[in-house]
Design a protein around this nucleic acid. Sequence first.
DNA 1: CTTTGGATCGTCT
DNA 2: GACGATCCAAAGG
Length: 204
Amino acid sequence: MRALDPERLAGGAVAVAPRLLNLVLVSGPTAGRVVEVEAYSAADDAASHAFRGRTRRNAAMYGPPGTLYVYLSHGVHACANVVCGPEGTAAAVLVRALEPVAGLEQMRKRRPTARSDDELCAGPGRLCAALAIGLELDGADLVEGDRGIQLLDDGTTPPATPLVGRRVGLGTRAGADAELPWRFGVPGSTSLSRPFGEQQMTRA
DNA sequence: CTTTGGATCGTCT
DNA sequence: GACGATCCAAAGG
């Protein structure tokens, strides 16, 4: 296990997102391997929280690459993003699913509704619950790991050919391009939030 | 299996 | 005052 090379966070959300696959997110005694992510560009992406400029909520997105951006979804679930470069552009990558690696006992206690270990971190809200990632961690430095949460490289390289698909759950915002293939996954993973490919349209 | 609606609250209009 | 980058349980086929 070694610290994340900052170079891996340079280059914009769409370029960075697939490169984050297979890194390990560690939060206290719990840890999971990143198996699914989504890119959120800023100025050119109506689906991004930073599309309309800086606000109190999205301030962390304007921090340096490697900053953790946590927001509350539907007043119920926290979702975690990794801010990437170039610094100040407010580009970020949403972590959508992890494969549980350590602290499974703790995760099961935090997520009693999970039917199997594969479901513990299979979803942006789910993984935050399993790793106890809350709003209080917004703005943490994932490279230094100063606040008990860190992104590490255990030597596993990103998949040469990641799964690619459309982003999930985009709102009905005018201008948001739901067709963009900005969702990436690790082929064969059994911890994805949902399948890739020409699948369901949970939104009409 | 698919579809539907409720929960719940910080943020922005 | 409206609305989610979601999750889950319940109801319907």
